Amino acid sequence: MDLEAFDAPEVLAALSRIACTDDNELVLASAGESLAGIWIRNGRVDWRVYEELSPAAKSEVDARLKGQAPQLLPGL
């Protein structure tokens, strides 16, 4: 899905909604990966969205943040 190049509010809202509610594991993981890329580039995580992520999306976010920006994951 590689949408991390786009961080307009509409894109973030759509990715957040998909990463929290879709029923397809591949779509959930892709949305999570895109959110992680945006958060890494912006240097901050939206913790409100993070807490609502599906397990598949959260797994992708955690892996990417741990590998590329562990400073954004305090306490994890």
Rank of each mutant, 00 (worst) to 15 (best):
P55I: 05
E10N: 15
N24K: 10
Q68E: 15
Q71H: 10
S30E: 15
E52C: 12
A36L: 04
A8P: 01
N24C: 08
A29D: 06
T21F: 14
M1W: 02
M1K: 00
R64L: 14
A56L: 06
A14H: 04
A56E: 14
L12S: 08
L53G: 04
L26T: 09
Q71T: 03
L12G: 02
I38T: 11
A14R: 09
L15P: 02
K58E: 08
L73D: 01
E10S: 13
L12K: 15
G32K: 04
V45Q: 12
K66L: 14
V49P: 08
Y50K: 07
L15D: 07
I38H: 10
D2K: 15
A57T: 02
L76V: 13
W39Q: 06
T21R: 13
A29P: 00
R64F: 11
G37T: 01
L53Y: 08
E60C: 09
L73I: 06
S16W: 12
E10C: 08
N42K: 11
S59E: 15
A69D: 07
A36S: 10
E25C: 02
V27Q: 05
E4T: 13
D22T: 06
W47S: 03
N24G: 11
A13Q: 15
Q71F: 03
K58I: 02
L65Q: 03
V45K: 06
F6R: 12
V61F: 01
K66N: 12
M1L: 12
R48M: 08
V45F: 06
K58W: 00
S59V: 01
G37H: 08
L72S: 05
A69M: 08
G37N: 09
Q68R: 15
I38C: 11
L3Y: 12
V49N: 09
D2W: 15
S34Y: 01
Q68K: 14
Q68A: 10
E33G: 11
A5M: 13
F6V: 11
A13K: 13
E33P: 00
E10H: 08
L28R: 09
A29V: 03
G43T: 05
E10W: 02
D7E: 12
P70S: 07
P74V: 09
G43P: 06
C20A: 14
I18M: 11
M1R: 05
E4L: 09
L73F: 04
I38S: 02
E52K: 15
V27D: 00
A13Y: 07
K66F: 14
I40V: 03
E10Q: 15
L28H: 04
R17K: 12
A5Q: 14
S54A: 15
E25W: 09
G43D: 09
R64N: 10
L3C: 07
I40E: 07
A69V: 07
D2P: 12
T21A: 13
W47Y: 15
L53M: 09
A19C: 07
A13D: 12
A69F: 05
V11I: 14
T21C: 10
A69I: 04
M1Y: 03
A56P: 07
N24Y: 06
I38E: 04
K58F: 00
W39E: 07
A31S: 11
S16V: 07
M1T: 03
A5Y: 15
S30P: 00
D7Q: 11
D7G: 03
